[in-house]
């Protein structure tokens, strides 16, 4: 629904050929990464039916990755040399659904199925908007069409398998997974905000505290001669020391 509201924004993002190419290439990487995680899931599940389905899903993701990359490269090749789109707007038009914030080998099947179901649903919503705004680029639109067909299969199998492996609690598992996604979104935001604040503090320190030390460091560097430096004998460097 949210993606629908931003349809004009997506139309603007996708109208630029170079931006489109880079986006497709990035989508290709995300799909391939997601495929690898699904392979991992297929290797770790004790359920043989799920192993087959995860593997099939992984093969689909790999194929999607190849399609995205191929199309992205086609568009890039068709552009005039030197063309450059400076703004990629990655956060406005996110890619597919890599399973990158989930340690697949540590998750029980029901949690993974719920996660995959919601991720596929989310990706399908986004991809259908992207498909709709690509009416002037028929080959790219066709790729999204094809991928959307696969996403329907992925959404269905994850839901039915969730009902199979967790017949009593699958509804609760889905809700739990929805809440976990919100919590994870908060954690991502908190970590990003923390990183920004940490970066800001360190940048302030850099300009306020470092200058005299930088002067001393540069002076010391000038005294160093280029080339070989002797290594002090081993007895002077006991292994208990971290320095």
């Amino acid at each position: 629904m949210i993606f629908e509201m931003f349809r004009p924004v997506h139309r603007w993002i996708w109208c630029d050929a170079e931006r489109r190419a880079h986006k497709l290439l990035r989508f290709g990487e995300t799909e391939t990464d997601g495929g690898r995680d699904l392979v991992r899931a297929s290797e770790t599940t004790p359920d043989s039916l799920l192993r087959r389905l995860y593997l099939e899903h992984a093969i689909d993701e790999h194929r999607h990755g190849v399609m995205f990359r191929r199309r992205g490269n086609e568009i890039l090749r068709s552009l005039a040399p030197g063309s450059n789109s400076s703004f990629q707007a990655d956060w406005l038009a996110p890619s597919g659904h890599g399973v990158d914030d989930l340690r697949v080998d540590e998750e029980p099947d029901e949690a993974l199925l719920a996660f995959l179901h919601l991720s596929e649903k989310n990706a399908a919503d986004r991809f259908s908007v992207y498909r709709d705004v690509l009416e002037n680029d028929i080959p790219t639109r066709a790729i999204f069409e094809e991928i959307l067909r696969d996403e329907v299969f992925h959404m269905n199998y994850t839901l039915t398998q969730l009902a199979r492996v967790s017949p009593q609690r699958h509804g609760r598992t889905l809700w739990y997974e929805r809440l976990r996604r919100i919590w994870k979104s908060y954690l991502r935001m908190a970590a990003a905000l923390g990183a920004v604040m940490g970066g800001f503090i360190l940048t302030v320190q850099y300009f306020v505290i470092l200058p005299p030390f930088a002067w001393l460091a540069k002076r010391a560097e000038r005294r160093e001669s280029p080339g070989w430096a002797p290594v002090s004998p081993q007895p002077n460097r006991p292994l208990q020391r971290q320095y």
Binding site: A190, A191, L193, G194, A195, M197, G198
Partner: peptide
Amino acid sequence: LAVAATVEALAPFVY
């Protein structure tokens, strides 16, 4: 920084 990395939920506040 190490504390902030551990308790990610509190990361924005640790600073």
